[in-house]
Simulated scan of single mutants.
Amino acid sequence: MKADALFPFPQYRLIAGVDEAGRGPLAGPVSVAAVILDPERPIDGLDDSKKLSEAKREALYPLIVERALAWRIEFVDVEEIDRINILQATMEGMRRALCALRPSPELARIDGNRAPKRLPCAFETLIGGDALDQAIMAASILAKVARDRHMRQLHARWPQYGFDHHKGYSTPAHLAALTQHGPCPQHRRSFAPVRLALTPA
């Protein structure tokens, strides 16, 4: 597919890539990032954060922060996730991140097939965008690194769950710890494995 067919909005110059990290875990916030890259300051090595090593993501993070025209990371906490559900929490995080960008974007390019309501700009959704668009790649890296760092901080408070290793995902070790210790305040009560751990045997 030709590039102009993939990205059919040549009139826009301030284009924000948007991506999230942490929709699936049983614990911790969902992290959303929006990034407007500077074409005059390219960043080598950008890719989907899931394809990069932790060391590579950590190395790229300060380069993105330094060279981007604008960037923003938003956390949506566990209480809000449980109140409005994880999809709506993710959409709200995207909206907040885009609204906070300065300069404001003219177009938001959002990874996936859903977009929030009440955005401050035009938008397009792009399935697999974190492998196709540099700004979405940058957003995926910021969201992933920021959330991983946050989960390591949570580990310092609740070390019995191993948040520093699995980052809240439902690994066998995490499920075993959840069964043994029950949920902590950072577990998402709206997720079935956490609800199950709350139910008396």
Rank of each mutant, 00 (worst) to 15 (best):
148 D>S: 02
130 D>S: 00
154 L>A: 12
134 Q>G: 05
150 H>W: 09
125 T>V: 14
158 W>H: 14
138 A>W: 02
114 R>T: 08
129 G>L: 08
134 Q>A: 15
141 I>H: 01
155 H>I: 06
124 E>D: 13
138 A>G: 06
149 R>I: 07
149 R>V: 01
122 A>T: 10
128 G>A: 05
128 G>M: 05
137 M>T: 09
121 C>S: 05
134 Q>Y: 08
121 C>G: 10
153 Q>F: 11
125 T>W: 05
134 Q>C: 10
141 I>M: 03
145 V>I: 07
153 Q>R: 12
136 I>E: 09
155 H>W: 10
145 V>E: 01
146 A>S: 15
140 S>V: 08
139 A>D: 08
119 L>E: 12
141 I>T: 01
129 G>P: 07
123 F>E: 06
114 R>V: 13
138 A>E: 06
157 R>S: 13
116 P>Y: 04
133 D>C: 11
157 R>F: 13
154 L>V: 13
115 A>C: 11
146 A>H: 08
132 L>W: 11
124 E>L: 08
115 A>D: 14
122 A>H: 14
124 E>W: 02
148 D>T: 07
152 R>I: 14
137 M>W: 11
119 L>I: 15
154 L>W: 10
114 R>G: 09
151 M>Q: 01
117 K>T: 12
149 R>N: 08
132 L>R: 12
150 H>S: 01
114 R>L: 13
140 S>T: 13
144 K>N: 06
120 P>H: 14
148 D>A: 06
149 R>D: 07
148 D>V: 01
142 L>H: 04
115 A>F: 11
131 A>P: 09
149 R>L: 08
143 A>K: 01
134 Q>F: 04
130 D>H: 00
156 A>R: 13
148 D>M: 05
115 A>L: 12
158 W>D: 02
136 I>F: 12
126 L>C: 15
136 I>L: 09
134 Q>S: 14
130 D>I: 01
120 P>N: 11
128 G>S: 09
123 F>S: 10
148 D>G: 00
157 R>K: 14
155 H>L: 13
122 A>F: 11
154 L>P: 04
142 L>V: 11
144 K>H: 12
136 I>K: 02
126 L>H: 06
119 L>F: 14
127 I>V: 13
148 D>L: 01
139 A>W: 01
147 R>C: 01
143 A>Q: 00
129 G>Q: 03
133 D>L: 04
131 A>R: 14
133 D>P: 02
136 I>S: 10
142 L>I: 09
118 R>Y: 15
152 R>G: 12
116 P>I: 07
129 G>S: 05
125 T>R: 03
142 L>K: 05
142 L>F: 09
130 D>P: 03
125 T>D: 08
120 P>Y: 14
117 K>E: 11
129 G>K: 04
158 W>N: 07
131 A>Q: 14
119 L>W: 12
144 K>S: 02
126 L>P: 11
